[in-house]
Design a protein around this nucleic acid. Structure first.
Length: 481
RNA sequence: GGCGAGUUGGCGGAGAGGUUACGCAGCGGAUUGCAAAUCCGUGUAGAUCGGUUCGAUUCCGAUACUCGCCUCCA
């Protein structure tokens, strides 16, 4: 289909934009670090989900939907979860199950496709233990006081991804160093669990895995010792991804682990880092509950290239809402829906716009792709708009073609009393009579009265329709009853 | 302190060593009895200072400022 397409991706490992060549075009493999499941996903969590969802969609478009494997994990063993269980008295599994349910619901609402596999860490403990054993055997890890630690000095490339040297990091370290570590930068592969903490039996006693080993183990099990893309937020670059690389490279010296590393920049809110202490912290669910649709959130997110900080602002939200309303209306007016899409497919008109794909394939240039959407939206016939509709669909901005009417409906009119309908209808009838008689002075007078009450009158064709505007004031109409 | 990113027109936000980004807002026009919608046109922006080049906003260097990670929250 798109054999001549050149996909370029910025590789954090080489710090360059490179032509993407999959190890196996029949099975393109991507791993993305998923959430620790102890609470609702906040807006910042949604950025990598959406960035890599678009990449997933693009890869499926280029290589075929059945030729892409996307793995995103759930970290369901973690001290934050343990703390949440301790403070609520709830069962850990109940917390993680519930949180995964929330996560799915929220990310579904954003139009994110479910990954091919969503492994839970607790279901892969055996694979982690195997990997840790291998690392001890090969001299890359050691046991100390019930812990198993990775020896960073055993891996010469340690620090290459994030551009740090072990010596520099030790010099700048602010954390207290556990006395049993041979090198201050050594990190935990396995740690002991006490009675009240979840644990699994192992050669090193009852305990639980360190944070980093799960991604290495699950990526190996599900994608192999070499795969194509590893993604995540750039906050994970150090130490998480650095440690993943060290573990995987040492445990599977013949594999390349991930060829391409991709990191999305962080999200800000009104120009500031989103944090609890600044009071600008909110979840995806908070936004959805406020009536901000998943499509709007998605369009705002894709409006900034993934490699740059993304600023969530009220103004962008409003602009995206207006843009989407316009786009959906264009499609609706031209009869788009499941039937038309089917007909376009049957007629061979359901094709990707090459320029749109080309822009997107240039390191996932979503802002550029959105610019192309604006151009494509100027089509005048269903055939001319097919590329636009296809592109919107590819970007995940059309959850369901049967829903277009609802999507195009955009804002709901504020509720108003039944008598208002009568009053306005009466006034409009009077205006219509005057217009028919070309008595425009009277017609305009009626419009002025309605405008003063915040009623927006729109003449389409021969008929007038109305809707309560933002300044709608029923009280001003009451006098006209 | 260590590592990294960014600085584009009123706002948002891209690509490309030499030709229109795009959107919103504004302005001019068409159309509409008015209004809305729509359509057409319109903006010589690229932090500062140097360098490379026939030519740089785009490459290189320095300066300033902003931001992120290294620390619970991504």
């Amino acid at each position: 289909m798109s054999d001549d397409l050149i996909l370029r991706l910025h590789n954090s490992r080489t710090r360059r934009r490179e032509v993407f060549e999959p190890l196996d075009p029949r099975n393109v493999r991507m791993y993305v670090c998923g959430p620790t499941v102890y609470d609702r996903a906040h807006l910042g969590n949604a950025r990598p989900v959406l960035v890599f969802d678009v990449l997933f969609r693009l890869l499926r478009h280029v290589y075929g939907a059945d030729h892409v494997t996307y793995v995103r994990n759930f970290t369901d063993v973690d001290d934050k979860i343990n703390a949440r269980a301790a403070e609520t008295g709830r069962d850990i599994r109940a917390i993680t199950d519930e949180t995964i349910g929330w996560y799915h619901a929220d990310m579904d609402a954003l139009g994110a496709l479910r990954p091919t596999h969503e492994p839970r860490a607790t279901e892969w403990i055996g694979a982690m233990k195997d990997m840790i054993s291998d690392l001890i055997k090969s001299g890359h890890a050691y046991e100390a006081e019930g812990h198993v630690l990775f020896a960073v000095e055993s891996y010469a490339e340690y620090g290459a991804l994030s551009g740090r040297s072990i010596d520099d990091m030790i010099a700048g370290a602010r954390v207290e160093v556990a006395p049993y570590k041979r090198n201050p930068m050594d990190f935990v592969l396995w740690k002991p669990s006490d009675e009240g903490t979840p644990g699994w039996d192992s050669l090193w006693g009852r305990g639980r895995p360190g944070w980093h080993i799960e991604c290495s183990a699950m990526a190996y099990e599900l994608l192999g010792e070499s795969f194509d893309i590893h993604g995540g937020g750039n906050d994970l670059m150090f130490p998480h991804h650095e440690n993943e690389i060290a573990q995987s490279a040492c445990a599977h010296p013949h594999g390349a682990f991930a060829n391409v590393w991709m990191h999305n920049e962080m999200l800000q809110v009104e120009g500031k880092k989103m944090s609890k202490s600044l009071g600008n912290f909110f979840t995806v669910r908070d936004l959805l509950d406020q009536g901000v649709s998943g499509e709007v959130i998605r369009l705002v997110m894709l409006g900034t290239h993934y490699g740059k900080p993304m600023d969530w602002t009220e103004r962008k939200r409003a602009e995206a809402e207006a843009t989407l309303a316009k786009w959906y209306q264009v499609l609706q007016v031209h009869g788009f829906g499941p039937d038309l899409v089917r007909a376009l497919k049957a007629g061979g008109d359901w094709q990707a716009d090459p320029e749109f794909i080309g822009v997107l394939a240039n390191d996932l240039n979503t802002p550029g792709a959105i610019a192309r959407l604006h151009v494509l939206a100027k089509g005048r016939t269903p055939q001319q708009l097919a590329g636009f509709a296809h592109a919107l669909d590819l970007l995940g901005l059309v959850p369901d073609w049967a829903d277009l009417v609802r999507l195009a409906g955009a804002t709901e009119a504020p509720a108003h009393a039944p008598w208002v309908d009568e009053v306005v209808a009466g006034l409009l009838a009077k205006r219509q009579t005057a217009r028919a008689a070309r008595d425009f002075a009277t017609a305009d007078q009626v419009r002025d009265v309605l405008t003063a009450a915040g009623v927006v009158v729109t003449d389409v064709g021969g008929a007038a329709s109305w809707a309560p505007g933002p300044d709608f004031d029923a009280f001003k109409l009451e006098a006209l009853k």
